[in-house]
């Protein structure tokens, strides 16, 4: 009996603590609306009156990292595009291709930020340090780098997806796994296939001729016309 009552006490205490930590929104609102209760400065701040549910708490850092990596890649593609735009390289097709990738990564950065906030998350703009890289590449080298970049992006998407579909370690979140599939995985598969096609085509053209100036010119013209 004594044992029982103390257990009950502990259970009640735990219940109260749990209640304080994750107070339901309605209860918070009711407290806030009660006239003579001792009110916190902003009771809504620590309540569940927000858009957080599911595994956003677990997946938020991954999504922020994913958005940040899109942002960095958008600038990397912009530099690659710039290099092909100078009068010496003069490859309008390559310039256009990488500008397109840069624009798309930029737009996806904003979309990701919107989605993070849609789920009650917060985009984190902490400092990003990336190793200094060379973006002044020759034609086929630039396509190869782009393929590596896209595969790494796809890998990021798969990692988030893998966590989101796992029911263990409370990272299960169908909304996020669906979002990643619908908005990123599908498009990324297309980009990876497109780049591989370019590399196959151009390397065949380059293998076939000692004077590759013509091959590169034709290939650039092809990219320009897309």
């Amino acid at each position: 009996m004594k044992m029982n009552s103390s257990t009950l006490f502990v259970v009640c205490l735990l219940g109260i603590i749990a209640n304080v930590n994750a107070k339901e929104c309605r209860a918070t609102i009711q407290d806030a609306c009660r006239p003579y209760i001792n009110k916190q400065s902003n009771p809504l701040l620590e309540s569940t009156c927000n858009a957080r549910y599911g595994a956003i708490g677990h997946l938020e850092p991954d999504l922020v990292k994913y958005a940040t990596s899109h942002l960095v890649k958008s600038f990397e593609y912009l530099l690659m595009s710039t290099h092909f735009g100078n009068y010496d390289m003069n490859r309008e097709g390559f310039e256009k291709l990488f500008r397109g990738y840069s624009d798309s990564k930029w737009a996806d950065t904003i979309e990701l930020i919107k989605h993070i906030t849609k789920r009650g998350g917060k985009m984190n703009f902490s400092p990003i340090s990336t190793s200094a890289d060379n973006y002044e590449l020759y034609e086929i080298e630039s396509l190869a780098k782009a393929l590596d970049m896209e595969k790494s992006s796809m890998n990021d998407a798969y990692l988030i997806h893998e966590r989101a579909i796992r029911k263990i370690d409370s990272s299960h979140d169908p909304e996020i796994s669906h979002y990643i599939e619908e908005e990123f995985v599908e498009k990324e598969a297309g980009t990876i296939r497109e780049l591989t096609g370019y590399i196959t085509e151009l390397s065949q053209m380059l293998a076939e001729s000692e004077d590759n100036g013509l091959a590169l010119h034709f290939f650039d013209d092809y990219l320009k016309g897309l």
Binding site: F75, N86, I128, S129
Partner: peptide, 12 residues
């Protein structure tokens, strides 16, 4: 911008 493009915009 014939050279030095890699450092034109910081990626960090």
């Amino acid at each position: 911008l014939v050279s030095g493009v890699s450092k034109l915009i910081k990626t960090s």
